[in-house]
Design a protein around this nucleic acid. Structure first.
Lengths: 202, 202
DNA sequence: GGCTTAGTTGTCAAATTTGAGTACTCGTGT
DNA sequence: ACACGAGTACTCAAATTTGACAACTAAGCC
């Protein structure tokens, strides 16, 4: 689907002609970084390829004082068609994108329970901090905030709540394992002691 | 962080030496595709690069009947170190990964409300289907299911619930806009009629 | 002035991903 | 006996991303 292209075409369609660095800045200012990531390499690469494909075209070059000159791009009619296509594709991508933490957790046999709990507690703290940021972002957080922006913020809020709930559940489970292994602290070797995942293989 | 490397190293550490296609198959069988995506190109590319770096090493080549020969790789001691590093990095990645739908929504001015509602309703249907799959996956869904696997499934469940809730909220908002514009169907031009996003720019 | 820090506007090689394709073999129906 | 869909095991070019760096300017500070 290509999020970078969608982001660039969308920015040009919404704000009119822009140059590369301006797109980066707006992504920071409008908090668009919440729902996209624009790194310089990807951004300029996409601009050059899309120019070659005729989706955008350079309209002029400006220079501000003695700062480096910059190339201003505008979206073409073909670019607008591509924008609609990419948007439809994006709406069609429904599945949950894989979260690295699931992968990490699956690879965490041979990891002692204290270290694991440490990781999860750290994550929970960071999530709580992010949640606070979003709540603080309740009303009129930045200029030109549209209804769509509100909905996107609400999306982030709901997603973070779900993450927090899951982390609490994780910590519960780890605690449960701990107390079980503490109670029968005798010379047993049977069930996963201090391990969330039994070390048995295939 | 590189999920592909983490996945491959984790598989080799858990199941012992494996060849490329076997890793793909296990990813399907163990439902690991729920929390990772292993495409052939990425997989074999990673295998070759990691061999060159000494994280894994070919231990033998097998041949099953007249099927193509295959190279079996084992993880090295250095590979195990790298595995621990990657896992720690994965635990450290806390933010919400951007969801393309947010991008699509942000680019959806000039999109009439009926089309938009159609997109969201389609998404909601697909999400509900996925949610049903996960609920159906409640107990003992596949062999060798560990506690960690259970937690990962629970993670997916919670995330999908959050998505469903947000989609319902979206549909509510769209419906609200519709009834408002239907009531004052006179000659008004003021507020966003049939548009979720007012078309005003910067 | 002279220094440091931050911002501007990108470029570039290397790593990685994508998506299709190759060249087989196996099982199953007809 | 032969086609045909599915599986095996992997390759490859092209697209894309990553992350560091280049080469400057601007703005404060003492």
């Amino acid at each position: 689907m290509n999020p970078t292209r969608l982001f660039v075409l969308g920015a040009l369609a919404r704000h009119g002609a822009m140059y590369g660095h301006q797109i980066r800045r707006d992504a920071r200012v409008d908090r668009a970084e919440l729902w996209s990531e624009v790194r310089p390499g990807s951004l300029y690469g996409a601009l050059h390829r899309m120019e070659a494909e005729g989706l955008i075209e350079p309209v002029r070059t400006e220079q501000d004082g003695q700062l480096p000159a910059r190339t201003v791009y505008a979206i073409t009619e073909e670019g607008r068609r591509e924008l609609r296509t990419l948007r439809t594709e994006a709406f069609g991508e429904v599945g949950l994108r894989p979260d690295p933490v699931d992968l990490a957790l699956a690879m965490s046999d041979e990891l002692d329970e204290d270290t694991l709990r440490g990781f999860i507690e750290d994550r929970r703290r960071m999530l709580a901090a992010q949640a606070a940021q979003f709540d603080h972002l309740g009303e009129r957080a930045w200029p030109d905030q549209t209804v769509a922006d509100d909905l996107i913020v609400e999306h982030a809020r709901l997603r973070i709540q779900a993450e927090l709930a899951w982390h609490d559940l994780l910590l519960d489970q780890i605690e449960k394992l701990r107390t079980v292994s503490a109670h029968r602290h005798g010379g047993d070797t049977q069930p996963g002691r201090g391990r969330v995942v039994p070390e048995g293989g295939r």
